[in-house]
C-alpha cells in the first residue's frame, strides 16, 4: 500500500500561531489555494480511498483535493491538546507534550494516539494492500503516523519533524512490515 498523509491547509489559528487541537478552526483563502495546488500535484494518482479527519479544516482540504467521495474517520482527528488548546507553543511545555517518554499532564496521551493510528493502519493494510490511500489529517496525527511507521527517535522528542500546511509524505507499506 502506498499511503499518502496530507496535512490540512492553512487556518486562522495557524496564522496566529495558536495550538488548535480538537476544536474547529477555519481554512484561510491561502489554505484553500494550497489544497488546490495539492490537487494538481496528485491529479495522476489513483486513490482507492480518501479518508479525512472529521474536523472541517481537514474535510474541506480533502474534498478539494479528492477526485472521488471522501470517507470520514474519527481516528484521524487531531490530538486533544487539553489545557494547551488555543495557547501559543511558547506559552506551554510543547516539547514535553510531544516527548514519548514523558507522562502526559493534559490532553490525549501519545500512546493513545499511537493506538488509534495502529488500528487505522492495520485496517487500511487489510482493505487496500496494493493500492494508493490518501489520509487528510492534522500535524499531530501526521507526526504520530510518521513516528509510528519509522520508529520513535532515541531522544523520544517528536517535535523535530516539520509538517507545513498542505504538505504530504508518502509511505510504502506492506503487510510484512506490520508491527
Amino acid at each position: 500500500m502506498k499511503l499518502y498523509v496530507l496535512r490540512h491547509g492553512e487556518t486562522e489559528t495557524n496564522i496566529l500561531k495558536l495550538i488548535c487541537g480538537k476544536s474547529e478552526c477555519n481554512l484561510t483563502r491561502k489554505g484553500m489555494v494550497q489544497a488546490r495546488e495539492v490537487k494538481q500535484k496528485l491529479k495522476d494518482v489513483d486513490f482507492k480511498a480518501i479518508l479525512s479527519s472529521p474536523l472541517t479544516r481537514a474535510r474541506i482540504t480533502a474534498s478539494i483535493v479528492a477526485n472521488k467521495p471522501i470517507k470520514i474517520d474519527k481516528r484521524l482527528i487531531e490530538r486533544d491538546y487539553g489545557d494547551y488548546e488555543f495557547k501559543k507553543k511558547t506559552e506551554v511545555d510543547y516539547n514535553g507534550f510531544w516527548n514519548y517518554a514523558r507522562k502526559q499532564v493534559t490532553g490525549e496521551n501519545i500512546k493513545d494516539l499511537m493506538n488509534r493510528i495502529d488500528s487505522l493502519i492495520k485496517e487500511l493494510l487489510d482493505k487496500y494492500p496494493n493500492s494508493n490511500v490518501l489520509l487528510v489529517t492534522h500535524s499531530g496525527v501526521a507526526r504520530g503516523i510518521h513516528y509510528y511507521l519509522t520508529g520513535i527517535p532515541k531522544d523520544n522528542d517528536l517535535t523535530k519533524l516539520a509538517i507545513p500546511n498542505c504538505s504530504y509524505r508518502v509511505y510504502e507499506l506492506s503487510k510484512e512490515d506490520e508491527k
Binding site: N26, R29, L55
Partner: peptide, 14 residues
C-alpha cells in the same frame, strides 16, 4: 454546521 457556515461566509467574501 457552524464551522461549515463560517467557511462558506469566508469563500463568499473572497
Amino acid at each position: 454546521n457552524t464551522a461549515l457556515n463560517k467557511q462558506m461566509d469566508m469563500i463568499s467574501l473572497e
